[in-house]
Simulated scan of single mutants.
Amino acid sequence: MKTPVLLSLLACAGLLSACDSTPRERQEVMDRETQKLDTLAERAAAKLRVAGRRAARFDSVSRVRSRQPLDPAAELALSNELLGPYATVSSLTPATIEPAFVYFMQQVRARRKQWSQRDWDYATAVSRRLNAQFRAVRLDIKGRDELHIRALQTEFTALETGRDVKDLREAVKDK
């Protein structure tokens, strides 16, 4: 009694259809399907090779760019724009460091969409100077101000990384 139920389930699942063909016919079907899979795999591999080459080129260009020294005059000009009244970073105190970070991030948010990777290099240099001053006065900063500064530092890093990812995505995208 269980055998007819099992046979009907197997028939519904299509597992008995192999009994209606010869081994040679099954081999031909397998060969065609294997060829289709090979073609798909070859196409995917070709796309990956192209994307890999583009990513390597992007990485190479980024390394060359980052090795080039920043122009001190351009860095000073951008520092003055991004820090405004807090441009003299070395004179920032525990009371003024948090407003300096707030001002800096307001400027970064407002300008970031128009920036090139080189502009981000300059902004990162400004951020490093600001972070160095933060470390120098950190022990005298109120806890809530330090927490706010840490959040702003994280936001800057996220915005910068987001731009890197966007540029990398554009570099490897099929054109």
Rank of each mutant, 00 (worst) to 15 (best):
Y122A: 12
T124P: 02
S116R: 14
R109G: 07
M105S: 08
T93C: 03
Y122T: 11
A125M: 11
A95P: 00
E98M: 00
V102K: 06
Q107D: 11
E98Y: 01
Q114V: 05
D119T: 12
T96F: 00
V102H: 09
Q117D: 11
E98T: 01
D119F: 08
S116Y: 07
D119R: 14
R112N: 04
E98K: 04
T124K: 12
A100R: 02
W120R: 11
I97R: 07
F104E: 01
I97K: 01
R109T: 00
W115V: 12
A125L: 13
Y103P: 08
R118E: 14
S91D: 10
V102N: 04
I97E: 03
F101L: 02
P99D: 04
Q114L: 15
A100P: 14
F101C: 02
K113E: 07
T96L: 04
A100S: 12
D119C: 13
S91F: 02
S116M: 09
R112F: 09
A123T: 11
M105L: 15
R112T: 04
Q117N: 10
Q117R: 11
R112Q: 15
Q107H: 13
E98Q: 06
A100H: 07
V108N: 02
A125G: 10
R118T: 15
W115Y: 12
S116W: 07
T93Q: 12
T96K: 03
R109C: 02
V102A: 05
V126A: 15
P99G: 05
T96I: 02
Q107K: 15
Q106K: 10
D121E: 14
S116N: 08
A95S: 05
Q114C: 03
K113W: 05
F104T: 03
R118I: 13
D119L: 10
S91V: 06
Q107F: 07
A125Y: 15
R112H: 08
A125E: 14
E98D: 03
A100K: 07
A125N: 15
E98G: 03
D121T: 15
Q106C: 04
I97F: 02
T93S: 15
Q107P: 06
D121S: 15
Q107N: 12
D121V: 08
Y103K: 06
F104V: 01
D121C: 13
W120G: 14
V102L: 07
F104Y: 14
A110E: 14
A95F: 06
K113L: 11
D119W: 12
W115S: 05
Q106V: 00
V108D: 06
F104H: 09
D121G: 13
R112E: 08
V126Y: 10
A110R: 05
A95T: 03
Q114D: 06
I97M: 05
A95L: 03
T96R: 01
W120C: 06
D121Q: 13
T93H: 08
R109I: 01
A95W: 05
Q117P: 01
T124N: 13
A110V: 07
T124I: 10
Y122R: 14
A100G: 11
Q114W: 09
L92R: 05
A100M: 09
R112C: 09
D119H: 15
Y122S: 08
P94A: 03
Q114M: 13
V126E: 07
R111P: 04
T124Y: 06
W120L: 10
P94C: 01
